[in-house]
Design a protein around this nucleic acid. Sequence first.
RNA 1: GGAGGGUUAGCCUAAUUGGUAAGGCAGCGGUCUUGAAAACCGCCGGGUUAACGCCCUUGAGGGUUCGAGUCCCUUGCCCUCCGCCA
Length: 442
Amino acid sequence: MRVCVHPQETGAAGQEKMLDIRYLRENLEEAEKRLKTRDEGIDLSPFRELDERRRALLKEVEGLKERRNRTSEEIGRLKKEGRDASGLIAEMQEVSARTKSLDREVAECEEGLRDLLLNIPNLPHPSVPVGRDDNDNIVVRVEGEKPGFSFTPKEHTEIGESLGIIDFERAGKLAGARFALMKGAGALLERALINFMLDLHTREHGYREVLPPFMVKSECFVGTGQLPKFEDDQFKIEGWDHYLVPTAEVPVTNIHREEILNEATLPIYYTAYTPCFRKEAGSYGKDVKGLIRLHQFNKVELVKFVAPETSYDELERLTADAEEVLRRLGLHYRVVLLCTGDTGFSSAKTYDLEVWLPGQGTYREISSCSNFEDFQARRAGIRYRPGGAKPRFVHTLNGSGLAVGRTLVAILENYQCEDGSVVVPEALRPYMGGLEKIEKMG
RNA sequence: GGAGGGUUAGCCUAAUUGGUAAGGCAGCGGUCUUGAAAACCGCCGGGUUAACGCCCUUGAGGGUUCGAGUCCCUUGCCCUCCGCCA
């Protein structure tokens, strides 16, 4: 069901909620306890007072409005009959003034509530392990095996630069640190990966391909949860209300913002390629070299809109769809269930896929698959009508399928040969004009 | 960038000089029917309430007014034309 902070603002206020206000009112202690498993600093204590004050104000102002409505009609009748209504009009002038000032108080009160609510993360699902950070995540399965090497495997930066397919130096000249310039077979490989992933998801997994705008309005960012809390991570377009998308999740989830979907159309599966733009504020010194952490990278995303009862089954299937990319590419990986402290702001439950990188001797995140339950749907106003009944919020999910740059890293490191060349995984060869091996050009 | 037109509930469409949102379609429930259709009845934006009721809702935000879909200002989006442009 839809809930509004302020009944007069059915559009705006309704979308700016995260948790059901009625749930909070009735279960404040429980909610705070559960949220504290994600973040000790969460404090819901201002909620009670704001909520009660708002309701008291509404009671008074609505009473006044009722009187005003009735009297105004009476005035209309009197005037039509040619009788004098000046006494009533004078009376209503006062009521009107009082109403206006009360309305302002209500608005202030609701702004406080919004500030509070918009910054509260989603409740973690009961199956999510309680923990502080990534040390408390749980490896739920491991697929494939680490490749063996008869030599010491190199990191992708070294492989890519010596093959002449990645040029970090000139990328720096163009755009500074954390950008890459892909060249020749490197650029082709990146493009092949995008096409391979989109084809797999559209032809075999039932997703519909979309190509959204790469910059969208701020309200979309509020809808999916990047705003207001994570403004610092976003690239804003100067003089516009637009931001560059940090993930296709933002434009694709918001395709159905403020819509009531026909139940028969659910579930809806979309896949989209977009570049992703992130400031990476606060990651200074982390992954400064290579393709791992860039201000701009490519990603193929999977997004689902589903009926609430099905969303956890859908999460398992979405994760499997992302895993299939790694399987087809012959890459060893593991699936990690994130703990409460490591799960993203909007998500109720998240699996990360971590691919093995022999050059670095470590697993790195290459996909993140989440069920947001109705958190985003509530903020973005995405509903469906179950069997002609009242509209209900859908559940939304998404996952990377996959991060393209990191997949390219994994291929370079896992398929490298002693002579510095890189074997092209068979699944990609049709996308690369039959190329079997990337070798240094003369 | 300039000029003009538009925006009403899931969709489509009304609403004298300002007087308190009328219909239709789709959908849901029911009557009728062997079943279905048709016809007929009810429901069919949000909030609140045990219920009656009350408040809010004409893209958004302000203003004027006792009272605004209607008048004024700001603004989002869509369409047409001009200019510019891949």
